[in-house]
Amino acid sequence: MKISRWFAQHWVMGVALLVLGYLFLPIAVVAGLSFNRPSSRLSYDFNEFTLDNWRNPCATSDMCDAVLRSVQIGFIATVAATALGTLMAFALVRHRFRGRSGLNVLIFLPMATPELVMGTSLLALFVAGGVPLGFWTIVIAHVMFCVSFVVVTVKARLAGMDRRLEEAAMDLYASEWQTFRRITLPLVLPGIVAAALLAFSLSFDDFIITNFNSGTTVTFPMYVWGAAQRGIPPQVNVIGTAMFLIALLLVLASSLRGRRARRAAVAVPVARPSSRS
């Protein structure tokens, strides 16, 4: 009787933990394989423990070139998409204007369209326009699909902001620019940073759209794709594990900061309401 009641209350959690295990299994395998010396180029099985891959991650230099190129593309695309998207988010939340619903559709559609369709249609455009494919066509494509995600993220932050903070600043004779610089921007900044991180990770990890618009330029996902046919160097798993750890550190750091801000908010009864997130 007791056992069945315990089961009735906890089986959902049990299933949830199993599913989390399913989600983490490949990560564990990637981390494990980063310490593996494969028996042959085309083997994906565990063979022998080694630290060589971590000691010498750039043993296959074209892989590191590809990672570097992905970082460059990701950086440029992130800056551009974050700027464009943030401006749009401000206009959407703060202003009334004609054509709002049409614009919303234009922003929503790229998130709902299969990457395959966006990739092939851009390729059709570039080829019809005689644009040589390469580094910059990848950047153009990445900015395109990142912008919508930036708009959505920044918009959410802006919409949850207390307008009266700005009104108070203006009442206290702050100029518009001062109000923006000292009140609005600091309050929206976490949203902008989150949007930029999202844009970078989308760009860094994109394969399908890049595949159609890269010409002979090789990004990290393109490198892995090509190598999957010729044989994957184990260093790929080092990069995969390192990416995972870096992102995890970023998340932990931001949540620690959030917790400290929340504690400060509890200590001072009248604190900023937006420190919640």
Partner: peptide, 21 residues
């Protein structure tokens, strides 16, 4: 965070891990 964390690493590298599994 655990739900999102697997996406921190590359899509292709994760998929290749299934080849091992």
């Amino acid at each position: 965070v655990c739900v999102v964390a697997p996406m921190f690493t590359s899509f292709l590298v994760r998929t290749l891990a299934w080849k091992t599994i």
